[in-house]
Amino acid sequence: MSQAIVTALMAVAFCAVHIFVGRLEFLDREPRSRWLSFAGGVAVGYVFLHILPELGSHATTFEQALGLPPTLSESWVHALALAGLVLFYGIERALTHSRGRRRAEEGRDRPHRGIFRLHIAASALLIFVIAYLLNHREDTTAAGLILFFAAMILHFVTADYGTRHDHPEMYDERGRWVLVAATLVGWAVGTQLVLPQIVVGFLFAFVGGCIVLVVLKEELPEERKSYFLPFLGGAVIYSMLAIGEQYLAA
């Protein structure tokens, strides 16, 4: 089976999460589902064991392409990761502020529609990049692709659940279809367009920062009532699989 077919099936699985996350009733419970904490741990494990180490190789690309000193090229790469984190933090703060205003003024626990659309647009951008990277990753082994898929689909469960919780009516009506379109377009572009390595490095750095913020936003607030042990379990299990895969590939 060709890589394009395999990654197409993975993109379809991502789309299924966007469409059907609202039907995963075992996630919608108080206190917070342990599965969401487990998924968050896996996603963070992926960032620290795959994305952040790969930033080192992309820093070398920045150094060669832009003629920068090694330390400065590393700083630029990590600044891009920080930019992704700051972007999503700003959007999350805007969502929180908007919900608070509507709750006080209208008695509705929903953000304003414009702010929610901005959130969907930013999420679609992130999903587009992740879908593109299905076909353009530093680790081209089958095991590496499987680990990437597992980490990202669990990340989408966590992120989509959180997004839908903010405004379920708009998510179900239009938001999920925007995310589906971003997934399919990102995958399709990835099969036809090979970007320069410096751009791929930019995308990897941006994705890493975004995922860290999204996962920690879902796990850290006290009102989430999240679970440490499932989060730890997800991080440890994924770390063991990732290190084992690297050991076998060495």
Rank of each mutant, 00 (worst) to 15 (best):
G186H: 04
E106M: 10
D109A: 13
L118D: 12
Q197V: 01
A205M: 10
L95Q: 09
S98E: 02
T141C: 09
R164L: 03
G114P: 00
G201W: 05
G162S: 08
R103W: 08
D172I: 02
C210P: 00
G208H: 06
S123R: 08
A122P: 04
V185W: 15
E169F: 04
P196L: 14
V157H: 12
L95T: 03
R93K: 08
R176M: 03
P168K: 06
A131P: 02
T183F: 02
V129M: 06
R93A: 03
A188H: 06
L147R: 10
A143P: 01
F204L: 06
G144D: 07
R164P: 01
V157L: 08
V157P: 00
I146R: 00
I120W: 03
E106G: 02
T141D: 12
L195K: 07
H136M: 12
R110H: 09
A159M: 03
L125P: 00
V185C: 06
H167L: 06
V199N: 05
L147N: 12
D109L: 04
I120M: 11
Y132T: 07
P111M: 11
H136R: 14
I146F: 07
L179Y: 05
I120L: 13
E173Y: 13
R174N: 03
N135V: 02
I153S: 01
E173H: 15
P196S: 07
R108Y: 11
R117V: 06
A205Y: 06
Y171G: 00
A150K: 03
D139F: 12
N135P: 09
A121L: 11
W177E: 09
R101P: 10
Q197N: 11
N135T: 09
R99M: 04
A181N: 05
A143D: 00
V178S: 08
R102A: 04
E105M: 05
D166T: 14
F156Q: 05
R110D: 02
L125V: 07
L126R: 11
P111T: 04
Y171C: 02
L125E: 00
I120N: 09
L154Y: 07
H119E: 12
R108A: 12
P168A: 12
I130F: 00
A182K: 04
A94N: 08
H112L: 06
D109M: 01
R176C: 05
V207N: 01
L147H: 11
L133D: 00
F202H: 03
G175F: 01
R164A: 08
E106Q: 15
D172V: 02
M152I: 12
F148L: 15
H165P: 00
R164M: 08
I120E: 11
R113M: 02
I127T: 11
D166Q: 14
L134G: 05
S123F: 04
L203Y: 09
D109Y: 04
A181M: 06
V185T: 07
D109P: 04
I130K: 00
Q197I: 00
L118Q: 14
A188N: 07
G208S: 09
T141M: 15
L184F: 15
W177N: 11
T191K: 13
I91F: 03
F206K: 02
V212S: 06
T141A: 13
M170E: 12
H119Y: 15
